[in-house]
Design a binder for these strands. Structure first.
Lengths: 250, 250
DNA sequence: ACTGTTATTCTCATACTGAGATTGTCTCAA
DNA sequence: TTGAGACAATCTCAGTATGAGAATAACAGT
């Protein structure tokens, strides 16, 4: 059945109510680990459990706007147009199983956000608590948010392979080692420092030199490192692939 | 605002009505070209224009079910669980700009479907007409369906690179040349036959030999070709990359 | 039988990757 | 002040993958 025909013949209000929400998988790197923003639910159902930040779309806003607003409400930061200007937001997927919310039919459009070390969240008026959780030791999540989060993590890991988005987790300028740390943290595997260095500098447009170096060597020694900023490439070519895992292929 | 709080305090019916539809970008290869299933709209708005098949989700069905149903209604074929068993369906993205439908707020969850040479569509009771259109010469489309279709095409082209989905466009068994034809058709570029052959056979799990060959040579000559079927790989490693286009990278 | 087509296999030069080693700078603690 | 360890940056080398072209042979049609 086509939209227009439906609408021509029925009063929308007479149809079973469907609500649309956005849920945001917001990732950042803090304390050496990959973390996701979670809020503790104050109300039933799943009161007391942790959940992804999200909420209903408003009548006048587009989906990406709703996602940026929900994220801003929890972190105080805005998206690409905002003051920080360095948050990447992209649509992830939609979930609409009839029983995913026990009260009514809710279709959730999920978004994935990356950003460099974000500040502590401020609990919104509607959330009992909000904080960054290591993705390695997650609490039980409300609704199907565990599935959404797993999808977001897999997307983030994949995106590092063929886009320069790892730079979105780093500061304005960064060293090759810091960038390698981003990859190692998100992928959870150690990388060969020499090969990584060679690769980053050989991919056109990934990074560009600032001409500067760090003020001092590393905390435990080592020479000063050259500083880079994100380049103008939108896709990495050739891609920077994760070590292949056989179980992932079959 | 969180879902539960909203629901605890408000009657959903009092909120602005939102409707959720699924729209399907169904691709097949016919007549040597890549084609998409379109239906001609019978009703306002955009009456007479072509649009992607789609419609409202039903209260008891999940999103993928709704997509499979919409596709089946137009083609008479079902998805992976159906009799044909060879149709691939995956979620594409969601679109929810407030003004994308002039009558009310509609959020559309789009799906992408691939299948081998599908039969002519049967016009549903709700559509004036339905047919396969070459993606190279498309008519004007209703709503934002041009954008959705463009997204679907780009997704399909990308998926051929790192998944064995090209086999979903071919029959149960196929020759390496037929598979190459799928890539050339979807990507719109000629590929080196020898290198393609080497590549396909060297990627583990992409295809497996049936031990058979074609009954006769090609229509215009040439030896009989060996027949293969889809292998058990879910990801191609290493990937089969399109010739890089500089404009795509920056 | 002859010509043109196409499947399949090779060759070879170039590019990319993983693993390991080298060089030199820097921090820290004895 | 000096020695030990950490680390940035570069290099080597073998193995693997890719692009381009060519060779071989089986087949259809004339």
């Amino acid at each position: 059945m086509d939209e227009s025909e439906f609408l021509a013949g029925y009063d929308p209000r007479a149809y079973p109510a469907v609500a649309v929400t956005v849920d945001v998988v917001a990732l950042t790197i803090r304390g050496g680990g990959l973390r996701v923003l979670l809020i503790r639910r104050a109300e039933q159902p799943y009161a007391g459990l942790w959940a992804l930040p999200g909420g209903f779309i408003r009548p006048e806003e587009d989906l990406p706007q709703a996602a940026a607003r929900e994220l801003a409400e929890e972190t105080g930061l805005s998206g690409p147009a905002g003051p920080s200007g360095r948050i990447h937001i992209e649509q992830l997927a939609s979930y609409g199983a009839p029983e995913r919310d026990p009260r009514m039919r809710i279709v959730s459009v999920s978004y994935l956000a990356f950003a460099p070390d974000l500040p502590d969240p401020r609990a919104g008026s509607d959330a009992a608590d909000a904080s960054w959780h290591s993705v390695d030791k997650l609490p039980e999540l409300a609704f199907d948010h565990d599935r959404i989060l797993a999808h977001g993590l897999e997307r983030a890991r994949g995106k590092l392979e063929y886009t320069p988005l790892a730079t979105a987790f780093a500061g304005e300028t960064f060293t090759i080692s810091e960038l390698r740390g981003v990859y190692e943290t998100v992928w959870g595997v150690p990388l060969h420092a020499g090969n990584f260095h060679r690769k980053i500098l050989s991919v056109p447009g990934f990074v560009e030199s600032t001409g500067e170096s760090t003020e001092s060597g590393g905390a435990r020694g080592g020479p000063r490192a050259k500083l880079y900023r994100a380049g103008d490439a939108r896709l990495l070519h050739p891609a920077l692939l994760r070590p292949a895992r056989e179980e992932q292929i079959r």
